[in-house]
Amino acid sequence: MKSVMACQGISKSYGAGDILERVLKRVDLELFEGQASVLVGPSGSGKTTLLSILGCLLAPSEGQLLIADQTVNFSDKSSLTEVRRKKLGFIFQHAQLLPFLTIEENLAIVGRNAGMEDMDIKQRLDGLLQRLELKVMRYKYPAQLSGGQRQRVAIARALLHRPSIVLADEPTAALDWNTGKTVVELLLEQARLEKAVLVVVTHDTRMLPLFDRILTIADGLLSEQRQTAAVENTFYTQP
């Protein structure tokens, strides 16, 4: 399988001297095309920090991040923005759609920002709205949608510009179990269809069997578990 993203000895510390806090400790990780990984761990274990580094939003204190075999230059904000613009898709806990734009506009601006042609955006938008059963919501505003529908729009937004990596931060936290499961299943289905790397942070252990890889983080140390071992583990916060 083709390697899309790799962490090499990534550490992250906050503070200095006596109050130095090491949130991530030498994380090594390789993520492959079309592979869906779930990142689990107790609160404060470093999940969001790792996701922020993978999303080129936070610079590591040590180590390096490679995307498509290119080392990410965290000191150049403009190049970080370019990586996010072209190669990354994000899904946030509360969808974070722009409330003053319709669903169509929320999606279209991402395509335009990524430099897609208008015709390409339209075709892509039509396809995603169809696949995610959002066609009738096209001209509605986020406030007119349910939480599940908003997360489906967020999935469409994350995939619209064909990113090679999709990162999701607790996309089901604000949803009930059935809606959350549907959203994750849709996300997995679409990411696989697009052959994108998918990394999802979640607290909900019931979601784990849906993913290809289960990554566990505790006290800043990353490890990988087999499906059965992960499901039986008890330190996760139950939803």
Partner: peptide, 9 residues
């Protein structure tokens, strides 16, 4: 959100 999604400053 726009910054995170790759919009330039």
């Amino acid at each position: 959100t726009l910054l995170a999604l790759g919009f330039h400053q």
